[in-house]
Design a protein around this nucleic acid. Structure first.
Lengths: 134, 134
DNA sequence: ACCTTGTAGTTAACATGTGAATTACATCTA
DNA sequence: TAGATGTAATTCACATGTTAACTACAAGGT
């Protein structure tokens, strides 16, 4: 599957950066979503980060232990909890942001910025066509 | 990551089929490669199926126990072994082939055959541009 | 022959993917 | 208000992804 291979070669560029800071790709995704979107409940966070609930439970636990995120129970509903990125977590994201941008720029330079954008559009279109009609 | 989501929505169509026959996506990929290419050594098989060696070791073990594949040591080199699909495994692949084709046709119908092909070309191009210069 | 280096596979340890079952809580309804 | 149903999150069991370490064998050099 071409999608699988494409994802591999792209992520290969980011792994060294993530390894240096001792976080996984998924933990990074969770932190980025929280940094960009603000506090979220677990279900919404799982959707936005494309992570399944069981995985998210474990990731939250790990990130909480390292104090990258905090959780506050929602009043009036004992099931839900609001997850928010902490100052420490936010600092990490911001520290990685320039490197992340540089890596994407390098990819665009090799592959072509226009091609890159067109590819993203096509992928979004594919996702839409499949997820709506199902 | 758009690549991740795209892969998810595509694979979602195949999962019910695979679950019915009690094989995983990766096991299916291994069997397909062996069916299409003929007997291979583990390293080559891992590359073609985009599976890492440790995973392949486990998958081979599982497929061997179910007698979907066979392994024969290579003469003159005690490290290598030739992996080949068995008649049982081949029968499974051939049984699934029509359904697989139908699913891809349905996707092309929704998404557009030309778009589909263009997307594959772009992905291959991306893979090339990253894996060669890396 | 011995030692070094390289290669093919495997094992280990930990994180995530995936589906099913379970818990805790909400809500609805009789 | 008790019971049925629905929802959010977790837990369980197993398969894979990922890196590092390790074993087994091969090839070369001394």
């Amino acid at each position: 599957m071409a999608l699988l291979r494409a994802r591999e070669v792209i992520m290969a560029h980011f792994r060294p950066m993530l390894a240096r800071h001792d976080i996984t790709e998924q933990q990074w995704r969770v932190l980025r979503v929280l940094a960009e979107t603000g506090p979220l409940e677990a279900t919404e966070l799982a959707n936005r980060a494309s992570i399944l609930p069981p995985s998210l439970t474990r990731i939250i636990k790990a990130l909480e232990e390292r104090e990258f995120i905090s959780r506050n129970k929602v009043k009036d509903d004992g099931r839900r909890a609001l997850l928010a990125i902490s100052p420490t977590g936010l600092a990490l994201i911001e520290e990685l942001a320039p490197e992340r941008a540089a890596i994407y720029e390098a990819i665009e330079k090799r592959y072509g910025a226009a091609e890159h954008e067109r590819l993203l559009d096509m992928l979004d279109s594919l996702i839409q066509s499949e997820s709506t009609e199902g």
